[in-house]
């Protein structure tokens, strides 16, 4: 059972195919990472989920039924390119945007005041947006995304423009939303943050979903049989049928070797063979970072 599911979405623009049978499954109450190089089709996919554009074919299931016009009130969307009215007062425009999301004026004001207080920007309520610092504007943007308490949140590059302190604050807010039971789609280029907060991902490249699944599983399945071995001696004695030494590094009194294990032997056999000839201090398999997975998948696809 998925909270949101897209089935074979196709979107053709005048000169190029933006989405080619794109299917993703977003589980409930999870953080779903939507990855991909620029221009791969992420924004088109997000716009289709938001009902900003319609797909040429395929369908979107929301809570296991076709996405309906009223569902937009149950979605909060923070676009990559932020924007608010510069000349309008902060509070006034937050109320306006919340009303467009279906809240009554009084309710919007009440909820917004609570959020503004929490983000410590309540004193800016009557200021024009252009008087606020960029970080504060981002906070306002975040608040108007979540104020109508939607079940699905879509954040497109939510940390861009934030200093490390505010990035941490945002990260905590997103985790908090997850704990409250929200489902979150998170689009980013920052692979470190994907490893940190995403449960599942889909990687879109050249209009197609080329990789999807659980983050830990994906990293695991992309292992390359590469090990980091720390030895007490200067040399690592091993048969070439067992492993191939890629790199050697001197560290204090030890040596660190990066080796590629032969395909046909198991990890335990590999270790036992090494132990026969060497004094091993540590032994660790390299799990590829999401960054590696990303680059690898995209280059392979090209």
């Amino acid at each position: 059972m998925f909270f949101l599911e897209t089935k074979a979405l196709v979107k053709q623009y005048a000169n190029h195919l933006a989405l080619d049978k794109a299917s993703i499954q977003v589980p409930e109450q999870k953080i779903f990472g939507l990855l991909g190089p620029n221009g791969a089709g992420k924004t088109t996919l997000i716009r289709i989920i938001n009902r900003i554009t319609a797909p040429d074919s395929g369908e979107v299931l929301f809570r296991n039924r076709p996405l309906a016009p009223e569902d937009i009130y149950d979605i909060g969307y923070l676009p990559e390119e932020r924007g608010l009215y510069k000349k309008m007062k902060v509070g006034e425009q937050a109320v306006y945007l919340a009303r467009l999301k279906g809240l009554s004026a009084a309710e919007a004001k009440e909820r917004l005041k609570i959020w503004f207080k929490r983000f410590e920007i309540l004193s800016w309520w009557d200021k024009k947006l252009e008087e606020l610092s960029k970080g504060m504007q981002q906070k306002v943007q975040f608040i108007v995304t979540v104020v109508h308490n939607p079940g699905l949140l879509i954040f497109d590059e939510p940390f861009s423009g934030f200093d490390p302190l505010n990035t941490e604050l945002m990260k905590n807010e997103i985790m908090e939303l997850k704990n409250q039971g929200k489902t979150i789609i998170f689009s980013t280029h920052n692979m470190a943050s994907v490893e940190e907060i995403c449960d599942e991902i889909a990687l879109i490249d050249r209009s197609k979903v080329v990789l999807s699944g659980n983050v830990a599983e994906i990293r695991d399945s992309n292992k390359k049989n590469i090990f980091k071995i720390r030895t007490a001696d200067e040399n690592l004695l091993a048969d070439t049928s067992v492993c191939e030494i890629l790199d050697k590094e001197q560290a204090c009194h030890n040596c660190i070797f990066r080796v590629k294990k032969a395909q046909d032997i198991s990890n335990s056999e590999f270790l036992s063979r090494l132990l026969q000839q060497n004094e091993i201090i540590s032994f660790e398999e390299e799990i590829p970072s999401m960054n590696d997975v990303f680059i690898q998948t995209v280059t392979k696809n090209n």
Binding site: R51, I72, Y77, P79, E81, L84, L100, G102
Partner: peptide, 16 residues
């Protein structure tokens, strides 16, 4: 043009 260049339009058309 203001709404377009401000990019606020994307937020608004996700609601209306």
């Amino acid at each position: 043009m203001e709404e377009k260049t401000n990019r606020i339009v994307e937020v608004i058309v996700s609601s209306v």
